[in-house]
């Protein structure tokens, strides 16, 4: 689309684009009100310039911080049901292997049917080991064993899978807190991080997900999956802004190599690409 004038129609179009990208009503209104004001104050006449300002405003909201990944790490992966946790673990393990790191996986989802076998299948493909107990076992006990094993083998990266759970299920969120406590207590020289996996097809509920997972286990970063579809995942803007959680990774398919670093510029470009 191209515009030759800044008028109400342009603002309405921009609102429509943002809302359809799941940016959410409040964030959209805020963004559009801001550029309206800027257009007035700075007497901007060129619509393309204004759209660039809007994109810059979003980029500013998404501002990313650098992470250092040299220290041996325990990565606990959490999220609602079906978001893509187990698959993302396979992909991260693959990437770490390619960087010559020693990787260990922990089958912390002892609840869902065949969750352990699913993780084992990924581990086989990648060529890593999995620490697992039987279905129905205590997830914290699996994590405990895995951390001990990682420490004694001096593993570079231990990734702990957890069962999907809705953020509103307080007993299951308590269980997750317990798993994290055990990991932290036993972690020794290893750094502990929590990765929240969000499905990009999710709408505004993702804000509630991020908020409650963050309250329970203090989320360090987000992996946004399923961006290979037509959903834009715009809800992460509000999550970044309101909760301060950085977006780290994106999932763009079901295969091992379908993992990329989150690039704010291409993400914002895609928001406007219908």
């Amino acid at each position: 689309r191209s515009y030759d004038k800044i008028n109400e129609e342009l603002y309405e179009d921009l609102e429509e684009i943002l809302i359809q990208a799941d940016v959410g009503v409040q964030t959209t209104m805020k963004l559009v009100d801001d550029i309206k004001e800027k257009a007035r104050e700075e007497k901007i006449k060129d619509p393309n310039k204004l759209i660039n300002i809007l994109q810059d405003d979003i980029l500013e909201m998404l501002n990313q911080t650098e992470e250092d990944d040299e220290q041996p790490t325990i990565l606990m992966v959490v999220g609602v049901n079906g978001a893509g946790k187990t698959t993302t673990i396979g992909k991260i393990a693959q990437r770490a292997k390619q960087d010559d790191k020693d990787v260990l996986l922990a089958a912390g989802d002892t609840f869902r049917a065949a969750a352990i076998e699913q993780l084992e299948a990924w581990a086989n493909k990648v060529g890593t080991e999995v620490i697992s107990h039987q279905e129905g076992a205590d997830s914290a006990a699996v994590a405990y064993d895995a951390v001990q094993s990682a420490k004694s083998k001096e593993t570079d990266l231990l990734i702990v899978d957890t069962a999907g759970r809705l953020h509103t299920q307080s007993n299951l969120m308590d269980e997750l807190e317990k798993v994290k406590r055990v990991i932290e207590k036993e972690s020794g020289p290893m750094k502990v991080e929590v990765l929240l996996v969000l499905d990009a097809t999710t709408g505004q509920n993702a804000v509630s997900q991020a908020k409650l997972f963050d309250e329970a286990v203090d989320v360090d970063g987000i992996a946004l999956t399923k961006l290979d579809g037509t959903a834009k995942g715009g809800v992460v803007i509000a999550i970044r802004e309101e909760l301060g959680i950085p977006i780290r990774l994106i999932g763009v398919g079901e295969d091992l190599e379908d993992l990329q670093d989150f690039e704010p510029e291409s993400f914002v470009d895609a928001l406007f690409d219908f």
């Binding site: 809302i19 799941d22 609602v80 499905d199 097809t201 999710t202 509920n205 579809g229 959903a231 834009k232």
Partner: peptide, 10 residues
Amino acid sequence: DSMTGQDAVN
């Protein structure tokens, strides 16, 4: 999934 956003229509 009931949590689906704007993409549900597509």
